[in-house]
């Protein structure tokens, strides 16, 4: 039996895409000349070695597959062209549109707190309805997560270290009211108050605590962080 293909040297082989062995099921071979001797029609012409019979279902399956894939691709492109699409959102962010600037403002506001409290840790206090109203839970969570991230390696304290905080409701439940000594021990130099303003909206206020020298004349050697 003659070799059907020239062997490829080991170094020339592509390790990721080796040439697959020919598929085992060859329906064409079974239908072709020499197998039963039945001449078949292919697109109206007699089957020859150069005009092999292609089963109609195979061809239509191929067209169907291509049709489905192209339909999905076009549909996805259309989805991205809609004004509310993710692509438009990305464009809005990339072009710094008004809407995206507004959305970023709340992040920048909290990031600025990290800059304003140049040293020491921060205590988060709740005031007014923020102490009890679960409606603000989402805002409270956001403030805690974002400020903690921006401040690191300094800390935003909302509870003693052994209390589990997963969201704003946990902060509300614990409501830390530390003593002066606790604040000094934890190097807390600013207080961030979250509550409601006179107009009924949410409010965030940052206060810097008087320095320890002013308070008691006993500086602490505790550094920021944990």
């Amino acid at each position: 039996m003659p070799p059907r293909s020239i062997p490829v040297p080991e170094t020339q082989r592509n390790p990721f895409f080796p040439v697959d062995s020919p598929p085992s099921r060859n329906s064409l071979g079974q239908n072709g000349p020499g197998r039963g001797g039945l001449a078949r029609l292919n697109r109206g012409k007699l089957e020859t070695i150069l005009n092999r019979f292609i089963p109609a279902d195979g061809r239509s399956f191929q067209y169907a597959a291509w049709g489905v894939v192209l339909l999905v691709l076009v549909h996805l492109c259309w989805l991205q062209l809609r004004p509310e699409s993710e692509l438009h959102r990305v464009c809005a962010v990339a072009t710094q549109s008004t809407a995206s600037r507004t959305a970023l403002m709340q992040y920048e506001q909290l990031d600025r707190i990290a800059d304003q409290t140049a040293s020491g840790n921060v205590l988060l206090k709740l005031a007014g309805y923020a102490k009890t109203n679960p409606v603000v839970e989402n805002s409270l969570s956001f403030i805690y997560y974002r400020t903690s991230y921006a401040l690191y390696p300094r800390r935003l304290y909302v509870a003693p270290a052994d209390k589990v905080i997963n969201n704003g409701l946990d902060i509300m439940r614990i409501e830390l009211s530390p003593s002066q000594q606790w604040l000094q021990e934890h190097d807390v130099r600013s207080v961030l108050t979250f509550g409601n303003n006179n107009a009924g909206g949410e409010m965030l206020r940052l206060e810097t605590l008087p320095s320890r020298d002013d308070q008691a004349g006993m500086p602490t050697n505790k550094s920021g962080g944990y």
């Binding site: 329906s27 292609i54 191929q62």
Partner: peptide, 28 residues
Amino acid sequence: WAEVETDHRLFGSALINSTTETSVPARR
């Protein structure tokens, strides 16, 4: 999808194989 495409490729490979079968022995 590759399986659907195989039918198409089989047509091509069958052609090549049959050509090889007829030509190679002659050369040998």
